[in-house]
């Protein structure tokens, strides 16, 4: 079998990541109880981004894939950010 994808992630790593995800979930719920005004949504999204980074990197093995996979994901995220950002250039100044 191709050597590039033969990395077997041990159980331990997965379980540690899972614990980290649970902790982050706890953090986001507790932080949401404090009123930070408009900052709130950004804090929530940042924590969600950390969580998804963990899922993508370890659970989905992206960390162990070729550079191509990472660049492709980056392009998809940039395009999505552009779609949202450019729409806001209309929405914010209307």
């Amino acid at each position: 079998m191709s050597s590039e994808s033969s990395h077997i992630v041990p159980y331990r790593t997965f379980i540690l990541i899972w614990i980290a995800l649970l902790i982050l979930t706890g953090v986001t719920i507790s932080v949401a109880q404090i009123d930070l005004g408009p900052l709130n949504i950004w804090v929530a999204l940042s924590i969600a981004s950390c969580k998804s980074a963990l899922v993508v990197a370890i659970f989905m093995h992206l960390k162990y894939e070729q550079l191509l996979f990472k660049l492709a994901l980056l392009s998809a995220l940039i395009i999505l950010a552009i779609f949202i950002g450019f729409t806001f250039i209309d929405v914010l100044y209307r």
């Binding site: 395009i79 450019f86 250039i89 209309d90």
Partner: peptide, 22 residues
């Protein structure tokens, strides 16, 4: 080509800033 969709919408009531950018 993925950045210019707004040029179909100049008369839709979109903001002037967006019209300028697109």
């Amino acid at each position: 080509g993925s950045l210019v969709w707004g040029h179909h919408m100049y008369t839709s009531g979109m903001s002037d800033n967006a019209v300028l950018l697109f």
